[in-house]
Computed example of a mutant assay.
Amino acid sequence: MVQSNDGRKILDTIGALQNSLTKTEKRIAEQILATPELLAQSSLSEIARTLSVGEATFIRFCRSLGFKGFSDFKLDFAIEIATQSQQPVALLDTNIGPKDKPRQIATKLQNVINRVVGETINLLDFDELNKVVKAMRQAKRIFLFGVGSSGVIANGAKNKLMRIGFQVDAENNNHFMYMQASLMRKGDVVIGISHSGTSPETTKALEIAKEAGAVTVAITHNLRSPITKVSDYVLNNGNRQGQLQGDSVGTQITQLFVLDLIYALLVQAEQEKATQSKQKTVDVIVQQRDK
């Protein structure tokens, strides 16, 4: 169960939970995502009748989203739908047509990026984020794990964190991930990146690292996915549209956004140290170029 809604947008939370719901819950979720405006002003009995479920079933669904019951859910949901209807409708995917001009395509991509970043902000638990930043500041070593495009993102984050003075490494090969994870110690932090949260390699690496004593962090879209079960902290990125899964620009942007937010908070917390470390790394590269 999600512990608390904490101001998260309901539709985004439903999207983040969708892949881990029961068959009945998934049917409820699909109907709400498809026609949210039809349910916003309905009573519990009307919603239950519309969805062909029992009232108790829908109340349990509300609780699984972090609400105490239907009344709390209905109030927040009605506000969200009313607010959403006052905002310009964002494109759900790129929908690139064969006659689109480059500027039109660029605008569509911009809409995608704006939407998924907004969704990420809605889903992030900022108390959890602060705890991750605190753990990283105290860490002896930091490791980032991810496969495929998530591995590319992990390597990019490694470069940024190294420049501000952190002992950090990244791996995208499962054998090397397992070996590194087995050598973790108390005081180390391991971050696993998996949009679906179902990557067996990344999940296994975090499980091994956790057993070895490291603090484990998951960056994932799905709130109840396997990787969350082996993570001390979970940071949720957006992009719930099926068309934009995997290595899409939307997914990569949201993962980068979470990691850049961590980076910004680390720099903010230790600005002088970060500035000095970054200058050292810049100087040594310039010196090598001048030789």
Rank of each mutant, 00 (worst) to 15 (best):
C62K: 01
C62E: 04
L65E: 05
G66C: 10
F67P: 06
S71C: 07
D72A: 11
L75T: 12
D76G: 03
F77L: 07
F77N: 07
F77G: 05
F77T: 05
I79E: 14
E80Q: 11
T83R: 12
T83V: 11
T83I: 12
T83N: 12
S85E: 13
Q86M: 15
L91V: 13
L91S: 15
L92K: 11
L92V: 11
D93E: 13
D93I: 09
N95Q: 13
I96W: 11
I96G: 11
P98S: 08
P98L: 10
K99N: 14
D100V: 01
L109V: 14
Q110L: 14
V112E: 15
N114S: 14
R115E: 06
V117I: 15
E119W: 06
I121F: 08
L123P: 07
L123F: 02
L123H: 03
L124R: 07
D125P: 08
K131T: 05
V132E: 01
V132D: 03
V132Y: 01
A135H: 06
M136I: 10
R137G: 07
Q138D: 09
A139C: 00
A139V: 00
R141S: 02
R141F: 07
I142F: 04
I142S: 00
F145L: 05
G146D: 02
G148E: 01
S149M: 08
S150E: 04
G151C: 01
V152H: 12
N155W: 05
N155H: 09
N155M: 06
G156L: 09
G156P: 06
K158V: 00
K158Q: 05
N159T: 13
N159A: 13
R163H: 12
I164A: 03
G165E: 00
V168N: 00
